[in-house]
């Protein structure tokens, strides 16, 4: 369950500011956030993830007031609860596909990398069609393959909340469906919450709820 109350955020002295009086997302819900560029959709994802701190108001996820936690606690919370999918994939060019997928395990000591994790990574990768590319460098992959790697990286830690920023923005129709299938299958099988920012109105029908940043609508 995500609850946002009287949230206010701005970047330094800039013109941009975001205000969300109230927003609630239920456990297991799939939500698409749409709106014009610069309206603050990605910022909202960052606030929910705890990678940005609001000027005022509260963001509560699964009972944890994320904005009130200190840096290390926010990181541990994020690791335990959130899988992030970035619009630009954000894969590390010097790692192969498998190493990119299990990267969260290598950079956070609360996660333990073992055989089970490796098997799970390989299994999810196979399910999304990149099982034979685990030892290729990330920059030798197509756009669709890169996005699938980014999705598998978010799923491998088995988070109860998935935050996806334009998960299909760089993909052709076939890969777009493939990536969405992965996300929705995961959310469905694990009763996970999925919040995706998108400009793509063709995919909105797949979400249980769509939020327009200029006004909520169902």
């Amino acid at each position: 369950m995500i609850e946002i109350q009287d949230l206010q955020f701005s970047y330094g002295e800039g013109d941009f500011s975001l205000e969300v009086p109230e927003l609630a997302v239920a456990h297991g819900e799939t939500v698409a956030i749409v709106g014009p560029s610069g309206s603050g959709k990605t910022t909202l994802l960052n606030l929910i993830a705890g990678t940005a701190i609001p000027r005022s108001g509260q963001v509560t996820t699964n009972g944890n007031q994320v904005s009130g936690l200190h840096d290390a606690a926010r990181r541990d919370f994020r690791i335990a609860n959130i899988g992030l999918v970035f619009q630009e994939f954000e894969l590390l060019e010097y790692l192969n596909v498998l190493d990119n997928i299990i990267l969260p395990y290598r950079i956070n000591r609360t996660l333990h990398l073992d055989k089970t994790v490796l098997e799970r990574a390989a299994e999810i990768a196979s399910r999304v069609g990149i099982g034979d590319k685990l030892h290729r460098y990330a920059n030798h992959l197509s756009q669709g393959e890169k996005q699938r790697v980014a999705v598998v990286r978010a799923l491998v830690v088995e988070p109860p909340l998935l935050l996806a920023d334009e998960p299909t923005g760089n993909l052709d129709p076939v890969n777009k469906d493939r990536v969405l299938d992965i996300l929705f299958e995961y959310a469905d099988e694990n009763a996970a919450t999925l919040i995706a920012v998108t400009h793509d109105h063709d995919i909105l029908h797949r979400f249980r709820r769509v939020i327009d940043f200029k006004g909520f609508y169902a």
Binding site: R78, E90, L92, P104, I107
Partner: peptide, 20 residues
């Protein structure tokens, strides 16, 4: 910078990234 930000966002601690 961007790579470092990504690592921090997906759960990397600053000391661990700095260690790397």
């Amino acid at each position: 910078r961007r790579e470092i930000d990504t690592m921090l966002k997906i759960g990397g601690s600053r000391p661990r990234v700095a260690s790397m």
